[in-house]
Amino acid sequence: MNVTLFFEQLVNGLSLGSLYALIAVGYTVVYGIIQLINFAHGEIFMVGAFGAYTVWMVVGSPTALSWPMALFVLLPAMILGGVVLSVGTALATERFAYRPLRGAPRLAPLISAIGISVFLQEFVRLFYRKLPGAPDSKRAIPFPRIEGITGHSLQVGAVAIKLSSVFTVVALAVCTAFLWYYINKTKTGRAMVATSQDPDTARLMGIDVDAVIMRAFAVGAGLAAVAGVAHGLYIGNIDFKMGFMAGLKAFTAAVLGGIGNINGAVVGGLVLGIVESFAAQLGNSAWKDVWAFVILILVLVFRPQGILGAKVADRA
């Protein structure tokens, strides 16, 4: 592999990895607090992408905005719409699908999660089929062009870096910075950490654990929605099934980094993205989806606590 190709694959891997990382945080934060693998989280990511798309439709499907308008008005509005829809959906699933099952055997909320996942896919598919002016939801829907990002690249030496790649990586960096601040510097963030370490003692501190759980779902959903927009820009289209594979990959990333560990989710996502991207380059690209699951199985067998160690391990 020559140097240019190497760097191109590295950039691809980082972009893909940033997407996985943004989604993986949601798995890990929720798992850290209620030990639930929220298998509907991939659909929360998908709903975020459709939320952003809907905002674009609602403002009249603009296609010829000037780049400052597209970048600084339309894109933020789309991200906001995606976040609102994802967070709302996640809070509703928490309230109606998971909270009633708290204290039930662990399998019950897991099955509930799978049900929610199917429900959300079908709901989005049918809803957009009925929506006047909406494209055929059976096929992939082209994501709106954002002037200033879509179709542009940055030339670094011989390596061309797509601006949508840059957007994805920057989105991860910004979200991680906010998350770090929230977890370490705010009172409700500290309450979240305390609850994940020892829920009963957290309650003795006066922490409302139900509120913490809702915040965990909300934070994860917010990041997933950002990932949904980044996916639309980077991959170029969205569809109602997009959450399935992305969700599984992000789950793998969370396990790889150590489920329950937020830094681990970010590291795991990036590692998985890079491995996938190089594996696709070196081998047969039709096999690219296999590698994630080979990694998942290897991690589960040989290092179930993940790269950075699951938080469960230091609970003692």
């Binding site: 009172k187 500290r190 950490v193 305390a194 370490q197 020892d198 009963d200 003795l204 006066g206 230091d314």
Partner: peptide
């Protein structure tokens, strides 16, 4: 039942949550 990897002060502040 302390929060073992949090600082003394963080533990105390959680007590005042």
């Amino acid at each position: 039942r302390l929060f073992k990897n949090m600082s003394v002060e963080d533990n105390l502040l959680l007590g005042a949550f």
